[in-house]
Each structure stands twice: as C-alpha cells, then as structure tokens.
Amino acid sequence: MSNHHETSLTENVVEKWGLLAQYENPAEIYHACEKVRDAGYTKWDANTPFPVHGLDKAMGLKASKLPWIVLCGGMTGPTLAMLFMIWTSAYDYPLNIGGKPLLSIPAFIPVTFELTVLFSAFCTFFGLWALCKLPRWHHPAFNSPTFEKFSDDKFFIMIEAKDDKFDWSKTESLLKASGSSHVEVVED
C-alpha cells in the first residue's frame, strides 16, 4: 500500500483504483495489450466479452496451473476408489456371490473410472474458481459506468495504480496512444 501513496500526487488520487481504457474490437485490444505488456506493467488486465484468440500471448500470460490441480484429483479419485472397494469387498464385508472371487479387480474398474472422472471434474471446477479468485461480491471496475459493456461488445484494459510502473499521466498517455476510444479513472 505504501507504493500507492508514493505515486499519489493529491489526497484525491489516493481514492482512485487505476485507469480503465475502452477499445472497440479484438484487433484494437490485441495491439494495445502488446504495448502495455512491452511497457513492463504487471498489475493489469484485459476484459473481453469472449476469450480473444492469441490475447494471452499479447498479454504475456504464463500457462495455467489448472492441469496440475486436476492431475492431483485425477490420481486421488481412482486410488481411493480402488482401495475402498478392495477393503469393503474382500476384507470388511466379504460376501460370497455365485462363488465369484472376493478380490476381483476387473469388476472394480468401472467404478474406478467413474471416480477418476468425478474427482477430476470437481478439481477442474473448484480449481478454476480458486485460480480466478471468484466468486467475489464486487470489483472496483464495476464502479465505472461504461465497464458493464465488457459482457456485450466492448473491450477494456485496466491498469492498477498499485503497479510499480504506474504513473497517472504517463500511463494515461500510453493507453490513449494505444488506440483507446475512452480512458477513465476508476474509483476504489
């Protein structure tokens, strides 16, 4: 937070969260993201109605960690399933049905498969929202009257004032030079 104060010129500015720039189409935001990325900003984001193809590269995003979370779930599910079935069927409650072997691994495969899928799906779902830090009640961007167009047909870049490189006038001119149709200050 100390950073926040150093870059603030007036008391009024302390209340501000950052800058929000609007773009009209995927091509504009794509080139703008490249500029913001090359300027070395880290605490910034692009907000789009749909995932714009290649924007991850224009923003310099690293690969998602989600597959690793899913891999953990995908290994826990079948392990627990198999151990549980072996324990209940062969040890805790041995039940002779038609003289079939108590420990019959092939018969345990369908449930093992299903639990692999189930655990992986849960890890994907909850892992996704954990990585996104969602759900959350509010975000400063929603204070802007224009921001809600992100879910329709407008494209936005927001840069937080907390960013090390942030400077109210320089950042604003960067965004304007990047082809934004409208740059505004977002209140916190």
Binding site: T48, M59, S64, L66, W129, L134, F150
Partner: peptide, 17 residues
C-alpha cells in the same frame, strides 16, 4: 455470474478448464 468480469486472466484458466 459469481462476479465474472471477463478478465483475460480468468478466460485463460477458463478455457483450460
């Protein structure tokens, strides 16, 4: 909507998910 704000950083995980 869970507070979805179309963040590209979210879309990035979202598409993977």
């Amino acid at each position: 909507a869970l507070g979805w704000r179309g963040s590209m950083r979210h879309w990035w995980h979202y598409e993977k998910a």
